[in-house]
C-alpha cells in the first residue's frame, strides 16, 4: 500500500515536472524576459530550500534509525494526549522552511502511527513565523501580532481535533 502510494506520487511527480518544463519552454518563446525572470525566482527558491531539505533529510534518517514506530505511536498516536498536542504545536512553531519540505517526514510519522490531527495542528502552527515576528510587529503592531499568534495556536488545536474526527477510520 505504502509502496503503491510512493510509486503513484513518483509517476505523478514526473508528469507534473514535465508539464512545468513545457510551460517554461512555451513561455521562453512567447516572452523570454518573463521566462528568465520566473526561472531566476525558481532558482532563488531552490537555493533557500536545499539547506533546509538537507536538515530535514538528516532528521528523517535519524528518526528512521533511532525511533521505533511503537515509540512514535506512543508520543504522537491515539493515546498521546496533551503531550502529543504540545509536541505538534511546538514542532510547528519551531520548524523552518517551506511547508512542502516537511511532507515526507510528516508522512513517515503518520504511517508509523502519528495521529492525523497532530499533523494538521503542526501544519497550522507553522503560520506563526518566529523569525518574522519583529517584522510583523513593525507593520501591524504588538497587539495585532500577539492576538493573531494566540488565535492561530488555538485554531491549530481546533483544526487538529476536527481533523481527527473527520479522518477517523470506521471501526470494523
Amino acid at each position: 500500500m505504502k509502496q503503491q502510494t510512493k510509486k503513484r506520487a513518483n509517476y505523478f511527480g514526473w508528469f507534473f515536472l514535465l508539464a512545468v518544463a513545457i510551460s517554461y519552454i512555451t513561455l521562453a518563446f512567447a516572452s523570454p524576459d518573463k521566462a528568465s525572470q520566473s526561472l531566476l525566482h525558481a532558482l532563488d527558491i531552490l537555493k533557500q530550500v536545499i539547506p533546509i531539505l538537507a536538515v530535514v533529510l538528516f532528521l528523517t534518517a535519524l528518526l528512521n534509525t533511532f525511533v521505533q514506530p511503537k515509540s512514535i505511536a506512543g508520543h504522537l498516536g491515539k493515546e498521546s494526549g496533551i503531550k502529543g498536542w504540545l509536541l505538534a504545536l511546538t514542532g510547528g512553531l519551531l520548524s523552518h522552511g517551506s511547508t512542502y519540505i516537511w511532507y515526507p517526514i510528516l508522512q513517515d510519522l503518520r504511517l508509523n502511527g502519528a495521529r492525523n490531527g497532530l499533523i494538521v495542528a503542526f501544519f497550522y502552527a507553522r503560520a506563526i513565523k518566529l523569525p518574522w515576528l519583529p517584522m510583523m510587529i513593525s507593520y501591524f503592531g504588538l497587539t495585532f501580532t500577539l492576538t493573531l499568534s494566540f488565535y492561530t495556536l488555538l485554531g491549530a488545536l481546533f483544526q487538529g481535533l476536527i481533523a481527527d474526527k473527520l479522518l477517523e477510520k470506521p471501526k470494523d
Binding site: V20, A21, Y24, L43, I45, V49
Partner: peptide, 12 residues
Amino acid sequence: PMLLATIGVVGL
C-alpha cells in the same frame, strides 16, 4: 520531481 515542479510553478 514534484518538489522541483512545485518550485517551478512558484517561480511563475
